[in-house]
Design a protein around this nucleic acid. Structure first.
Length: 857
RNA sequence: GCGGGCGUGGUGAAACUGGUAAACACGCGGGACUUAAAAUCCCGUGCCGUAACUGGCUUGUGGGUUCGAGUCCCACCGCCCGCACCA
């Protein structure tokens, strides 16, 4: 039986921390602050392993920074609005609010059992009117700053359920519940003008040096700044006065143009569709691709000749105008010219519709006469050919020359374009923050007066009908116009839940403030020093938050622009999958290994096959409930396992063997300390003047571990800290306990106390318990971080690798700092080196100080 | 389709700016303790050859740069994340 009682210990220390309010954060201007935040959870029902991992990582940082003397803010809240609550309402007849608050209460208890160093007094839930009322205020503020506008946007429409669907509710072009073919529909909706900050959002990425490079690159590409040109093509049909305006990033390839293409939802296409059934059908077909860019771009490239022709701006030739499914209305002008030789999509399209392929850029090492394009477009550098006045120029120069000519002849214009689109924030849903606008027939869009805020979600709703229940809630919906007092209607849409998560980190600074954020508190705590969450939020959530801070700054709520100065993206938690012979997924706890070394289902006895290791998901039944693990092994074991082995930014595999191993280690630490307690005296005994080799060696590894673990904590290399702590533990337990001299017992106490202190951010309950056992009266949680003694962490001996021709032929132990000549002599005299060199001549000797000697032969 | 990432023993991984590949752990094998089992402790463990030391090979695949490549460059393969209404 393990001697350490984790159940007793974890409960004891959690209540001790609570009693001392050890983790409540108070603004103290004289202390340096550190704000640690993990992305707050959606209250889906129970916490999952992804949460356990994320919150463990954050807690290690929070506890470590606290020990380093920082004034740490580490809060928790709930991203409580969203679709699943409405689904639960429809499927189980439970009210979204009830469902959500029940989940919050379960998950709060689960998180508390993890022993997180969280200031629970700052807890917020976004579905609480005390929180979302401020979003309504800020919406009106942003409106005054011209950051909000109303326009038509596309939605996925389910014609059977009469409801708007989220992209994830559209499966293979069909509604997930009704199975009906969905279609794109236009709806008048609210937008945030995020594009007014596109350049700033892009440029400031350079300052976020504590963000992963990959996230910055992804945001950069998402904003998608491009230098290009608008080019106008005149229609041959004289009745069409307005030219076709296209956007291109490759104006240099204009002489290779063989067609133009416009989006299926381009105004011209829509106009033509009214009189041409073929085009109408095509447009209809494109609408069934839904609104997601992924669906549109993975579809087979298709188009229809509209019959319209345009004139090439510089050549005496006409180009056909197609309407095509790969041209996006939301990017550029919704119209392109196609140059098949130098764009893969254009080439694929041209090959399908037998359009000419005219190479105009020739690779540097190719001959213009012989250069042809078959089924791969050439997008690289080169010089222009077949291009009149551009001939001979390279791509960059040609771009500049053509833009100059376009502008001179008033046929186009150089321009900077962004891929980023404005943020559509209206959702046709109940469980979200109401939009504080009244629609009046006479006065138009009327903001709800500020003294009438907040607009509170009604509780009495009916989910049995189609669409948004708010839209059918007559008493809530029908109000008097605040301006003219005539009958009017509330906006029945609610905010995108990304709004809720775009400023919650700021609210944590002053969760009870009457205004969205208390400027003094925000000034002290923001920005978040370390933000932690999944890579899946690399673009949208993080970009929206960056925008929101700017909008809040512009409307005077706050003085910062970047919300997160440090970001860490953790990997997913995976688990093996199991399937029985009937092809059904089987839960891990239902899989048993029989005595005959077979694997079968515990319930039915059917044989089971082990499948791939995949992200934990309910559908594949390969989940493990963190709470089960905590009940069985304790929070420290769960935390230790989740930190060991895999680097936190990479995916990890949850295994039973791993958790068992972690459990053994926790108990081993307790046992090792227990066994040595009678031998090591009381705390703070006099430090011996001299140390024996054994004691010195233990002290050296102890102090090297302090230095190593400290560096690892700073760099999120917790798996390496774990390895180092194993090494320290091994070193401690290998010291012979017979006839202990004072210097050794002193060194053992030092190493044990160090071990416990270094462990405390990762396994806080065990550490606190052991700290007490080691004779200390105060909480370890309030102790500062140990310091490594410089003298003890530098080696005076090093091992040199000796190579011949780059191959290892031996190693030698030498004094650190040995010079080239002596190292070379020593190495050269080694028999193995002699044999390897043989009769060959040594051409050169490479010497890397304190690393290696390499004889080049 | 577009953008971003990852790939090292049986397994999770380590290897700082190019310098001893496999630290640490899991698993496995052997041993000690035990009436026995569990727990614990000790030893071994990349692969191939070998009686043994020595040796040869090895970081998804193929090429390149270098005295030297897991690390840098090019091409390919596989897997994962995001694509604007999941959160």
């Amino acid at each position: 039986m393990p001697r350490y009682n984790f159940r007793e210990s974890e409960a004891k220390w959690q209540s001790a921390w609570e009693k001392e309010a050890a983790f409540s954060a108070i603004e103290s201007p004289e202390k340096q602050k550190y704000y640690v935040l993990e992305m707050f959870p959606y209250p889906s029902g129970r916490i999952h392993m992804g949460h356990l991992r994320c919150y463990t990582l954050g807690d290690v940082i929070a506890r470590y920074k606290r020990a380093r003397g920082f004034n740490v803010l580490h809060p928790m809240g709930w991203d409580a609005f969203g679709l699943p609550a409405e689904n639960a309402a429809m499927e189980q007849g439970i009210h979204p609010a009830e469902w959500t608050y029940k989940n919050i209460s379960t998950m709060r208890n689960q998180l508390k059992a993890m022993g997180l160093s969280i200031d629970w007094t700052r807890e917020i839930a976004t579905c609480d009117p005390k929180y979302y009322q401020h979003e309504q205020t800020m919406f009106l503020d942003f409106m005054e700053q011209n950051l909000i506008y109303r326009e038509e946007g596309w939605v996925n429409w389910d014609p059977v359920d009469h409801t708007v669907l989220a992209n994830e509710q559209v499966i293979d072009g069909k509604g997930w519940r009704s199975g009906a073919l969905i279609e794109r529909r236009r709806l008048s909706q609210w937008f945030c003008r995020i594009t007014s900050y596109n350049d700033n959002l892009l440029k400031k990425l350079d300052h976020l040096h504590r963000w992963p490079k990959k996230v910055r690159t992804m945001q950069e590409n998402w904003i998608g700044r491009s230098e290009g040109a608008y080019i106008e093509f005149k229609f041959t049909e004289t009745s069409r006065k307005n030219p076709l305006k296209v956007y291109t990033t490759r104006p240099d390839t204009i002489f290779g143009a063989s067609f133009c293409a416009i989006a299926a939802d381009h105004p011209i296409t829509e106009e033509l569709a009214k009189k041409n059934t073929e085009i109408e059908e095509f447009v209809e077909e494109c609408r069934q691709l839904g609104t997601s860019e992924e669906a549109i771009q993975t579809a087979e490239k298709k188009g229809i000749d509209t019959g319209l022709r345009v004139k090439h701006p510089f050549l005496d030739k006409d180009l056909p105008v197609y309407t095509a499914n790969f041209v996006l209305m939301g990017y550029g002008t919704g119209a392109i010219f196609g140059c098949p030789a130098h764009d893969q999509r254009d080439l694929d399209f041209a090959l399908t519709y037998r359009l000419p392929v005219i190479p105009v850029v020739v690779p540097p090492d190719e001959n213009a006469d012989k250069f042809t394009i078959t089924n791969e477009a050439y997008i690289g550098e080169g010089r222009l050919e077949n291009s009149e006045f551009l001939d001979g120029l390279d791509v960059e120069k040609a771009k500049r020359a053509i833009i100059e000519r376009l502008e001179l002849e008033k046929k186009g214009k150089g321009t900077t374009n962004y891929r980023l689109r404005d943020w559509l924030i209206s959702r046709q849903r109940y469980w979200g923050c109401p939009i504080p606008i009244v629609h009046c027939e006479d006065c138009g869009l009327v903001p709800v007066p500020r003294d009438q805020l907040p607009v509170i979600l009604p509780d009495d709703i009916d989910f049995s009908g189609h669409g948004n229940p708010l839209d059918r809630h007559e008493t809530w919906k029908n109000v008097k116009c605040p301006k003219c007092k005539k009958a009017a209607q509330r906006d029945t849409d609610t905010f995108d839940t990304f709004i809720d998560s775009s400023w919650y980190f700021a609210r944590f600074c002053s969760p009870d403030s009457k205004v969205p954020v208390d400027p003094k508190a925000a000034q002290y705590w923001l920005p978040v020093d370390q933000y932690i969450g999944g890579i899946e939020h690399a673009i949208l959530h993080l970009l929206y938050s960056r925008f929101f801070m700017r909008a809040m700054q512009q409307s005077g709520h706050i003085e910062i622009d970047e919300p997160f100065s440090g970001l860490f993206t953790q990997g997913m938690v995976n688990h093996a999958t199991f399937r029985d012979s009937g092809g059904n997924w089987v839960e891990p706890q239902n899989v048993i290994h029989t005595n005959e070394n077979k694997i079968e289902r515990a319930d039915t006895g059917l044989p089971v096959e082990i499948g791939r290791v995949e992200k934990m998901s309910k559908s594949k039944k390969n989940t493990v409930d963190p709470t089960d693990v905590i009940e069985h092994y304790g929070a420290d074991t769960a935390r230790w396992f989740i930190l060991s082995d895999s680097p936190p930014d990479r995916d990890m595999e949850w295994t039973n063997a791993g958790i068992e191993g972690a459990f053994r280690y926790i108990n081993r630490v307790a046992r090792i300390i227990d066994d040595r307690l009678p031998l090591i005296g009381i705390p703070k005994t006099t430090k011996p003047k001299e140390f024996s080799t054994t004691a010195l060696e233990l002290r050296q590894i102890t102090h090297k571990t302090i230095a190593g673990v400290t560096g690892d904590y700073e760099n999120f290399h917790f798996n390496k800290s774990v390895a180092r702590l194993y090494e320290l533990t091994n070193a401690i337990s290998s010291v012979d306990l017979d006839n202990l001299e004072h210097d050794i017992s002193w060194a053992i106490r030092e190493s044990l106390e160090t071990l416990v202190r270094l462990l405390s951010p990762m396994t806080p309950h065990l550490a606190e318990d052991m700290w007490q056992k080691l004779g200390h009266k105060t909480l370890l949680t309030n102790m500062d971080w140990p310091n490594a003694e410089e003298k003890l962490i530098t080696d005076d001996k090093v091992t040199l690798a000796i190579q011949v021709g780059g191959k290892l032929r031996g190693t030698i132990n030498v004094e650190a700092g040995i010079n080239k000549k002596s190292a070379e002599e020593l190495a050269h005299s080694m028999p193995n080196v002699q044999a390897s060199i043989g009769k060959r001549k040594v051409r050169k000797v490479i010497f890397v100080p304190d690393k290696l000697v390499n004889f080049v032969v």
